[in-house]
């Protein structure tokens, strides 16, 4: 079943005095099946972040459609948007975005508290997630007391606790060392095996090599895509490297 469908997405930024127009996305279309693990790759300035912001309903496209479960999220009213983001989407950011006034546990609870979930229910949901993410012992610590990898795992827990339809991850390994990155990517794969749909934006080949499908974006368009098929992570890594080389050198010939 198709969970997310993106059709002909276009985004044009106009500079303040209307002089210059910058086309961030020219024509992006793709779809994500339920339970898929998709990575979107591209160089800086290719439009990755713009795409993610639009998918997260933090930004509006100039034209195009985004269907989540067949429903156009661009038609959601402004005041329902926050609740939509809270209930349907889970976010993992590069710089964690944990609040330093909350303990890890309260940070994870934040979206649930905003939806007025009873305390007992929150505890029930937290226990298995915390165990899976190996942060059960850290729940009462504050963000400034734990490492980057631990912070990011808490952020993942916060994204998962609402049982979102879709988890959006923006460079989740960007601020982590290689060991913490590997750990986090292993966890993402496990979460995905549990049935969670994940959409990750990254320019790390290592991160992308854990995904089931990789979309390459260049100059605001989906330029190429790779399926894992039966490949191992290492084989996929090699394929991605090749594709990236093609993208930056030979790619010009295709346009």
């Amino acid at each position: 079943m198709t969970l997310l469908e993106v059709k002909n997405l276009k985004k044009i930024y106009t500079t303040r005095f209307g002089g210059n127009q910058v086309q961030a996305l020219s024509n992006v279309s793709f779809s994500v099946e339920e339970g898929e693990y998709v990575a979107i790759m591209g160089e800086s300035g290719s439009g990755k972040t713009t795409l993610l912001n639009i998918l997260a309903s933090l930004d509006k496209p100039t034209s195009g459609e985004i269907l989540l479960d067949g429903k156009n999220i661009l038609n959601i009213r402004e005041r329902d948007l926050a609740a939509f983001r809270r209930d349907q989407l889970g976010f993992v950011f590069q710089d964690f975005n944990l609040l330093d006034t909350f303990s890890l546990k309260d940070n994870i609870f934040l979206p649930l508290v905003l939806s007025r979930t009873p305390y007992q229910e929150m505890e029930n949901r937290l226990a298995p997630i915390a165990q899976k993410l190996e942060i059960s012992e850290l729940l009462h610590k504050f963000p400034y007391e734990v490492s980057g990898g631990q912070k990011q795992r808490a952020a993942v827990a916060r994204a998962l606790i609402t049982h979102p339809r879709l988890v959006l991850a923006d460079e989740p390994t960007g601020a982590l060392d290689s060991k913490a990155s590997a750990h986090l990517l292993r966890l993402f794969s496990e979460i995905n095996r549990g049935g969670q749909t994940v959409l990750m934006v990254t320019h790390s080949t290592m991160a992308a090599s854990h995904a089931g499908r990789i979309l390459f974006i260049k100059d605001g368009e989906v330029f190429h895509q790779l399926y894992r098929g039966g490949m191992s992570n290492e084989e996929l890594y090699q394929k991605i490297s090749d594709a990236l080389t093609l993208l930056s050198s030979g790619g010009a010939g295709n346009e």
Binding site: R85, F91, N97, P111, R158
Partner: peptide
Amino acid sequence: IMQKVGLSH
């Protein structure tokens, strides 16, 4: 941050 994780204006 709160607006990012789902707090409305």
